[in-house]
Simulated assay, not measured.
Amino acid sequence: VVSLRTYFEEPSSEALGDADRPPAVIFENSFLDCDTQRALSADCERPSQLADIHAEPIFSAARRHTYVGFHSHKASWLAQVQGRKAWFLASPSREMPLVREPWEYVEARPEGVELVVAQPGDVLFVPEGWWHATWNLDDFVVGVGWESPDDGSSLEAWRASGAQSGKPKYLTQEMLYLAARAGYPDVLQSLLEWLGPMEDADEDRPYLLGAVAAGAAISGHLKALELLEPFSRRDGCWHPWALHAAALSGQDATVAWLLERGAATAALDSLNESEWAPSHAFQDGHAWTALHAAAWSGHASVVKRLLAAGADASTTIASGAAEAAVTCRVPRWRPSVEGEGATALHLAARRGHHEVVEALLSGAEGLVDLPDAGQAQNTNSNHNNNSNSHKK
Rank of each mutant, 00 (worst) to 15 (best):
F27E: 07
F88L: 11
D269W: 02
T343V: 06
S274I: 07
G352P: 04
V123Y: 03
P11Q: 12
S3F: 03
D35G: 14
Y67P: 00
S148Q: 05
W158I: 07
E323C: 03
A242T: 06
A133C: 03
F231D: 01
C34S: 15
S279D: 15
L228I: 11
R109Y: 00
L171R: 06
G129N: 10
W77Q: 02
L137N: 14
S165H: 07
V302A: 07
H73N: 05
G210A: 12
V99N: 14
C34R: 06
H353R: 13
L209N: 10
P92Q: 08
L16R: 14
E128N: 11
K167H: 14
G112Q: 12
E275C: 09
A290M: 04
D186A: 14
P206A: 14
L228T: 07
R109W: 00
A253M: 07
W130P: 01
R94Y: 11
P331C: 06
F27Y: 15
G220N: 03
S12P: 07
G310H: 06
T134F: 08
E358W: 06
G374V: 11
Q283K: 08
P97A: 14
V330W: 00
S12V: 12
F282S: 05
R63T: 05
A39C: 13
G310I: 09
Y177F: 15
S232R: 01
A179D: 09
V141F: 06
S219C: 13
T327M: 08
H244L: 08
L248C: 05
R329P: 00
